[in-house]
Design a protein around this nucleic acid. Structure first.
Lengths: 202, 202, 202, 202
DNA sequence: AATGAATGAGAGTTCATTCAT
DNA sequence: TATGAATGAACTCTCATTCAT
């Protein structure tokens, strides 16, 4: 295969390469995954990989950014579809609860490795921060609208609460990174939801 | 020159080597730090390093374990010295607040890199889990004693709350890993303290 | 669309491809020029390139040979048009003088890279030697005719002088390969002309 | 072998590695010689090579510079030992004549490949030019002293003649790079000597 | 006990060439 | 005929570990 391939085909292929690389990174981590691993897993040559991406790092970064784009995007969708602020937060907790722990673990490991990686590369810090800010801003808007609608207490510091919301969620996932079972995880998520809601309302 | 001091001397030296290696890992991360870096920083030879440790990985693991030992130890000390459960929690928050962000960042990066590292090595998961359990148990005891003393609400689920406490704290640090300033961090810690305390009491 | 033109068309195209490849080689050198560079520069595909030439090396060799053919050819033309031997040599020096240094440098670099390249491939040595011989023979004929016409000294060793003529010229270009300005170069060329002429006449 | 090796030993080893690498470069050229070739030839590991040099390029450059240093050095020695300017030039021609063609070819190939290589790296042009200038300056001094001593004509342009001297010599070697026999080479060198001397004196 | 030169497997990346379309 | 995606061998360079001294 090869001549005058459509742009769409290339895009699709690119996506499939990314997907394959992601599997490798999720399994072994970025540093431990070699370009040979990725190529072998995809049953392509290393040269092909470099025809689509300029470096192993680029694949990693694109993957991480795509992941964050998806999260922001899906939150935005949820936001548009949901009327009340409280309902939105409940939805989000519901989502957290639904995600199986083993899946969450893989993603979190990926995310953490990328974060530590990014923390040593000044050029990545800004983009990473931008994603975090999007998530914080979205929550800020939700909280503000909820406050105006009287769903939350009048003296709520939304910006601070937005941080808390994500902190609480990421921190719990971190506690369960190495082990722990789904039921316990969900039970604590329930308590966490109570805690946060209480904090927002009274 | 040294007839019997040997054992004590070796232990001391070992500790000093660990301290030097730690500095390197904190600065550049585990993967990016070479054994040459460590030996150069310590002004010893790589051979000597390998006389005290069997591998770079062993140094890393011992460091991580020592770090967790210290934390548990210092919490235990604090526990013994503090009478009321509430006071103990306040103390802990006070500590969090006092730690400068840039120092916290280095430690957290170290901790996260180790956690992701450990998550791929089954033989490390158990020991890591043991440390987490110690911290959780300690908090459990505190919370239980506070509950019995009437400081916290009667229907508090201590085990769940113990998770929440650590989750909340680690999660916030994670939010500030890449940037953010000390003042904002402390402001949110204050809110976090409120939230947690409210959750424990009512 | 093209029933019979094919052969001529192909030859023409072949020549235009060579011209484009030459530009690349002059700019970056043989080794540093990739087939991608050439194809991109020519706005054709690599496949097309390989339809006209069997390898990158073949392009290079054809280019080098074409260059030498051109030189021999132009010398021959000059030879036919010029009556006296002395006048012919003067003409050649005049040509050397007229060539801008930066252009000369590119060609010389190309020539030298090819020469070193050829020196490792026995199969290229013969053809290269053939070209050199043509140039030497031509000069030999000129010198001999000048000697017979009494323009040069009677005991002149034409074969040796022919070598000297080219040696002197290539050597000077080599001295100016890395830097030096046009005026200095021409001044020395003048002296060189004196030296050679003196050598031929007395 | 390995602990506390003397500085002298290391320097010696370094020199032996350079010598081995030189053999490879002389045989196959810089680009065609791989680091594996060098290591295999030296019966050491590639890692060792990189313990002594930071890159393949560094080896190459050191070799080229050392070669030029030697030439300058030996010329200087000759200069000091020789009284008359004419005698010095004769000596130099004598040397040219004595060098076997096959040896000269290897060195010239090396030199030319390095020169074309250097011509594309701005950072090398300066140092290369410096070497050329040293050679030119030395000759300049010789010619000037000869002129003052009345050995050469009074209106001699020494700077120009210095260029001519080297040009003539390098150019002739270039003519014999691919083939030609020693006797013919020497015969032409004799004529060349005549030509240059004539140019200097009358 | 301490040294650091030596190792060598393996990393990421490049590029002349091929061939299905 | 022209295309350019695919190939894969080969490249330079790294670094945890060893071991003769």
């Amino acid at each position: 295969m090869s001549p005058k391939v459509t742009e769409a085909y290339k895009e699709e292929k690119r996506a499939s390469l990314l997907a394959g690389a992601l599997r490798c990174f999720l399994d072994k981590g970025f540093q431990a995954t070699t370009t040979d691993d990725i190529a072998r897993h995809l049953r392509i040559s290393k040269g092909t990989l470099y025809g689509y991406f300029t470096s192993k790092e680029e694949i990693y970064i694109q993957l991480a950014h795509a992941r964050m784009d998806d999260m922001i995007e899906s939150l935005n969708t949820l936001y548009v579809e949901t009327s009340s602020a409280k309902a939105m937060l409940r939805h989000m907790f519901e989502r957290f609860r639904r995600q199986p722990l083993d899946e969450l673990r893989k993603w979190l490991t990926f995310h953490l490795e990328f974060t530590t990686y990014a923390s040593r590369r000044p050029e990545l810090i800004a983009s990473n921060r931008a994603y975090l800010n999007k998530a914080l801003n979205l929550l800020n808007r939700i909280l503000t609208s909820g406050k105006q609608a009287g769903e939350f207490r009048a003296d709520l510091d939304e910006s601070s609460a937005a941080y808390l919301f994500w902190a609480v969620r990421d921190g719990l996932a971190l506690s369960f990174l190495l082990d722990g079972d789904d039921n316990e995880y969900r039970r604590i998520l329930d308590d966490m939801e109570d805690m946060v809601m209480k904090h927002l309302t009274a």
